[in-house]
């Protein structure tokens, strides 16, 4: 564990809490892409199946369980409890365009052709693009609530911090995983446009509004 990974994980945790809290407090999931949340639930489920086979640490186990539970809770709030507030007319990204390539790529480019390993690889590829339905929704409506912007910023920062963690691990432990690194860079790049808007608008007290 190094400081970049710890802050990255905490940022990830913070993002999940911000989102759950926002939906719960406002009793509404307006502006939130259910499809992105569904993809995240698939990501955590397929990646953390190793909970059943290997024990890393109490921290590792707890965080995995929290991520899985929170992603299911978020989907439950969006698709069942606060279904009436779900803005599905604006959540029109075709997720099969992300799911199918992630499956094919995981079958073609992986470290080992074994079920758990392929599922892990699939989850890494899918995570890198899972936010696209949410970003698509923001661009379609042309705006996002501040709290949704904070959520996106915390979630985007997490993988960016992981890049620093991978650089650190490569330098200090001679450890690296190209699949995670390339996917993590792609994931972070997808947020760049949003980061720019967040820093120039939201942090200055303005609403995140895209030019018409």
């Amino acid at each position: 564990m190094n400081i970049f990974r710890l802050i990255g994980d905490l940022s990830h945790l913070l993002a999940i809490i911000i989102l759950l809290r926002k939906i719960w407090k406002s009793r509404s999931c307006a502006g939130i892409s259910g499809k992105s949340q569904l993809l995240f639930a698939i990501v955590y489920t397929s990646r953390y199946l190793d909970l059943l086979t290997v024990y890393v640490s109490m921290y590792n186990t707890l965080m995995k369980l929290v991520f899985i539970a929170a992603s299911y809770a978020t989907c439950y709030l969006i698709y069942l409890k606060f279904k009436a507030t779900y803005d599905h007319n604006h959540d029109t990204f075709r997720i099969e365009f992300l799911l199918v390539p992630a499956v094919i790529l995981a079958l073609l480019i992986n470290h080992d052709f074994m079920a758990l390993e392929i599922l892990w690889t699939f989850s890494i590829y899918l995570e890198s693009v899972a936010i696209l339905p949410q970003l698509f929704m923001v661009s379609k409506t042309g705006e996002a609530e501040s709290i949704t912007s904070h959520y996106l910023f915390a979630l985007g920062s997490y993988r960016g911090l992981y890049i620093l963690n991978w650089i650190y691990r490569y330098a200090m432990e001679d450890h690296y995983d190209l699949i995670a690194i390339v996917a993590g860079v792609v994931q972070t790049v997808l947020y760049c446009d949003f980061f720019y808007l967040y820093i120039t608008k939201v942090l200055r007290g303005k609403k995140l509004q895209l030019p018409a």
Binding site: R5, D9, N60, K64, H175
Partner: peptide, 10 residues
């Protein structure tokens, strides 16, 4: 090995 190594990340 690399398999167990990367599983410590989330």
């Amino acid at each position: 090995g690399k398999y167990s190594n990367k599983k410590d990340e989330l």
